[in-house]
């Protein structure tokens, strides 16, 4: 399912217009992205939670050439499945 299909499904289930559904989906994901960019946790009960993990810089190697590469510090979102989602996916 992609974003357009999600918008369609939301429109059909809630009886709102397509443009309203598109706006809601945009607000939902933009808000989560903004929170993560501000290093804030996201907790959507039953679905999932996210937090930002910080990785220090390290010297890596290009596995093809064996060359040393300096990897800069980075931040990545860490996903955790919610309890309800976990159970439903696995049943």
């Amino acid at each position: 399912m992609n974003k357009l299909e999600l918008i369609s499904a939301l429109k059909n289930e809630t009886d709102i217009s397509k443009s309203e559904a598109a706006k809601v989906v945009q607000i939902f994901f933009d808000h989560m992205a903004d929170a993560l960019a501000n290093d804030e946790r996201v907790e959507i009960r039953g679905l999932c939670s996210f937090f930002v993990k910080k990785y220090k810089s390290y010297t890596g190697r290009n596995p093809k050439t064996g060359e040393k590469v300096a990897i800069k510090p980075k931040r990545l979102p860490f996903f955790k499945s919610g309890k309800e989602l976990k159970e439903r996916v696995n049943s």
Binding site: M1, L6, L10, E13, F29, I44, L85
Partner: peptide, 20 residues
């Protein structure tokens, strides 16, 4: 309802792909 649609898709074994 939006959250439920996402869960339903994953429950049925279908990935959810959100560009961006």
């Amino acid at each position: 309802s939006l959250i439920e649609q996402i869960k339903k898709s994953l429950e049925s074994g279908e990935d959810v792909l959100i560009s961006g």
